[in-house]
């Protein structure tokens, strides 16, 4: 049932991200709805579940995006593993922690992705790419409260905040 919920959330995110996301953009800044899901599962679940969830999240992003298949899966699994490995020292229930972690790791993920794209095509200008990365990461972090609230609604058993058990 948990996996069914996860795949439903993933489908909704994929549909929203691939059809309607450009309607809420601010210039080049577009939120990445997949990334908060990675952070949420890294905070919430054990290593195996977290890895599988992040792999499928990356794979879904790969399917709806132009480029190599598997690149987002690798990055999401790696980022999820890092967050999972030091989550015990974080106060995960606090909204500020969630926003900050999402922002910082979104920056890291986007820089890695941009490095991969630059190596492949040599056509990404440094200044504008850095600006896109910063603005997208900031926007992604800003949508975290709403998304985490929705994800929590679907995971009644284990809540991160709002009535944390």
């Amino acid at each position: 049932m948990r996996w069914f919920t996860f795949f439903c959330i993933l489908l909704c995110i994929s549909l929203f991200q691939s059809t309607m996301i450009h309607r809420i953009n601010f210039g080049p800044a577009v939120p990445d709805l997949y990334f908060p899901l990675v952070v949420f599962y890294s905070f919430l679940t054990d290593l195996k579940r977290n890895t599988i969830a992040n792999w499928f999240t990356g794979f879904a992003k790969d399917l709806f995006s132009e480029g190599s298949l598997g690149i987002n899966s690798i990055f999401f699994v790696a980022v999820g593993f890092f967050i999972w490995s030091f989550r015990e020292i974080l106060f995960r229930g606090h909204l500020v922690t969630q926003i900050l972690i999402t922002f910082l790791f979104s920056l890291v993920y986007n820089v890695l992705y941009a490095a991969h794209a630059s190596l492949s095509f040599h056509s990404l200008p440094l200044s504008s790419t850095l600006w896109i990365i910063f603005s997208c990461s900031l926007y992604t972090a800003m949508v975290v409260p709403a998304l985490f609230w929705i994800f929590n609604k679907f995971h009644h058993g284990r809540r991160l905040f709002f009535n944390q058990r």
């Binding site: 298949l69 598997g70 690798i74």
Partner: peptide
């Protein structure tokens, strides 16, 4: 696959295989 680290390695291997297709 029950071993978490093995799951990580297997999934990364699958991703790498897909990447080089």
């Amino acid at each position: 696959i029950k071993n978490p680290l093995a799951a990580v390695i297997v999934l990364l291997a699958v991703s790498l295989t897909l990447l080089f297709l």
